[in-house]
Design a binder for these strands. Structure first.
Length: 565
DNA sequence: ATAGGGTTAG
């Protein structure tokens, strides 16, 4: 059967009658389960409604019936999307259709297209009457990452319920607008609205990502006081937040306090990931087994976490075992799982194997896979492979994240003292107008967050930090026998200059400021930064811990380092 | 209705 000719007939059909005829033809040829043809048919019906606009409901019912009879397979999101797209002039019906869609079992999940069409049809906002429709609209914008549009819509809404508020908070948290998430949460409090499970989870997730430890603790108090402690997602978010803020002990406590039967896959996986990120790979794996013994089936994310644990603990064989174990659980490996495997081999120095693995993956490798390998090359000083991989990476259309790739390659050269090559990488980077993302570090002092950058404008705070830093470095040299570690500095410059450029790194400033403002009895400093720590800073942190008797916890996105452990 | 966990790098 020529699919194309059928489709062209379908698109040419202008009435419900001819559409129905084509439909029966479809059945006769046993093509009714063909999702594409089916969707086209649906679209056609839907368009017929909007086309004659005379309150003709018949085609709509017909389209609906088609959907409910699309057995033996459940309908997929594509079909519903088509219907919603056809309802562009009937926002209320479109929203109702969406409501129906989310209640039905679908063979493919609701995707961003669903929201694109939904929002388009609801663009004429006067048509949207009830509050839940508005909330769905907000959620649609959030899912599309259009957080500004969501905010505008939210501000225009005359009536808002707690779902509207929590949708916004979660939206901010998911789109990296942490300050806004905090702000909206405070606003809820001011308006004397009760926070709910979602807004609490959302604001905690924002705290976790921003490393806002003090803020998180305030939220935690609120949770304890208002009896939200028994909500699974709130506990999960709390656990994750403590872990990401560097307090593994509290994360553990939250996990252990949860009732055994309340713990979900997410709870277990969060705890496994926390252990892994804090460097307890073996314990993470043990917990994975404990989870299985408790009858909780691991999902895809659980495997990512346990693979992460293996690669960072250097447990190659274990990693391979878990990777193949996924099949027993009917979990199809995704690009993330393959990424973990490449990291597993690469980190352990098996660069050839890692490269081979990446080339033979059934999914075509993304930039992250290659960057993983490039990182491994830099770790093990393999110039040849690094150059090859850099070439592959440059084929990706990367706008902002590519600066790091140049840095990585130049680090490979620098580690071998190939300064001409380092210079040429820098030249090519600057020719392509690639700017390195400036590194920053944050420290929370008495519930206020201070952010430092390497060559910041001097204000009182920065001056205070620099002054303290000078004093600290002197003390480290005298008492700790500090020698600057400058292997990673890119320029081939005089030693003194290298030391100088290293000494201004933002994390040193942040720690210095923390020490300058240290309160009596406080022995922990928490730093959050956007870039990975450099070797020299690592050494300095270790020495500071020793000389000053402090614990320094450095959080860096997904990893937490404890220099003194 | 809205929610919680996850691959790389400077």
């Amino acid at each position: 059967m020529a699919e194309k000719s059928f489709l062209s007939l379908l698109t040419k059909s202008k009435t419900l009658k001819t559409t129905k005829q084509l439909h029966s033809f479809l059945y006769k040829n046993a093509l009714q389960n063909h999702p594409l043809l089916f969707s086209k048919l649906l679209l056609h019906c839907a368009i017929t409604i909007t086309g004659n606009g005379s309150g003709e409901e018949q085609p709509l019912h017909y389209a609906r019936r088609l959907l409910s009879h699309s057995s033996p397979n459940p309908p997929d999101a594509f079909m519903y999307n088509t219907l919603i797209r056809g309802l562009i002039d009937f926002p209320q019906i479109a929203v109702n259709t969406f409501m129906e869609m989310r209640l039905k079992p679908l063979s493919s999940p609701i995707d961003s297209f669903t929201f694109v069409f939904l929002i388009k049809s609801a663009a004429n906002l006067r048509c949207v009457r009830n509050l839940s429709s508005w909330d769905i609209l907000l959620n649609g914008y959030v899912k599309l990452g259009e957080i500004e549009l969501a905010k505008i819509t939210f501000l225009r809404m005359s009536v808002k319920d707690d779902v509207s508020w929590s949708t916004m908070i979660v939206g901010f948290a998911q789109n990296g607008c942490f300050d806004e998430a905090f702000g909206f949460f405070r606003e809820i409090h001011k308006l004397r609205l009760k926070p709910n499970e979602a807004s609490l989870s959302g604001v905690l997730s924002a705290s976790a990502q921003a490393g806002a430890f003090e803020f998180a603790k305030v939220v935690h108090c609120l949770i304890e006081k208002s009896g939200f402690v028994w909500m699974v997602s709130v506990c999960n978010a709390l656990l994750d937040t403590y872990s990401k803020c560097g307090d593994l002990g509290m994360a553990r406590l939250v996990f252990e306090r949860m009732l055994e039967k309340k713990k979900s896959v997410v709870s277990w996986t969060s705890m496994i990931a926390s252990l892994a990120m804090h460097g307890y790979g073996v314990e993470a794996i043990e917990l994975f087994h404990k989870m299985e013994n408790c009858g909780i089936k691991p999902d895809g994310v659980s495997f990512i976490s346990v693979l992460y644990a293996c690669s960072h603990a250097g447990l190659i064989e274990e990693g391979c075992k878990y990777f193949s174990m996924m099949r027993d659980f009917d979990i199809e490996p995704t690009i993330e799982h393959y990424g973990c495997m490449v990291d597993l081999y690469g980190r352990a120095g098996k660069l050839e194997k890692a490269y081979e693995f990446a080339c033979e993956m059934p999914i075509s490798p993304n930039d992250i896979i290659w960057r993983t390998l490039l990182g491994a090359c830099s770790l093990h000083g393999n110039v040849k492979l690094a150059e090859q991989i850099k070439k592959r990476l440059s084929r990706f259309d990367l706008d902002n994240s590519s600066s790091g790739d140049h840095v990585l390659l130049s680090n490979v050269y620098a580690s071998l003292g190939k300064w001409e090559d380092v210079a040429s990488v820098r030249r090519s980077a600057s020719e392509q107008k690639i700017k390195k993302a400036p590194g920053w570090s944050m420290i929370e002092v008495e519930k206020l967050v201070y952010r430092f950058m390497a060559d910041q404008k001097q204000d009182e705070i920065v001056k205070e930090a620099y002054e303290k830093l000078r004093e600290i470095m002197l003390r480290l040299k005298v008492e700790g026998g500090y020698v600057p570690e400058i292997g990673n500095v890119l320029h081939d410059v005089e030693e003194e200059e290298k030391e100088d450029s290293v000494s201004r790194h933002s994390e040193k400033l942040a720690v210095a400021f923390g020490i300058a403002r240290l309160r009596e009895g406080n022995v922990v400093l928490r730093i959050v930064k956007n870039l990975r720590i450099c070797r020299d800073c690592h050494v300095v942190m270790k020495l500071i811990s020793k000389v000053y008797g402090l614990e320094i916890v450095e959080g860096c996105k997904s990893r937490i380092a404890h220099p003194l452990r």
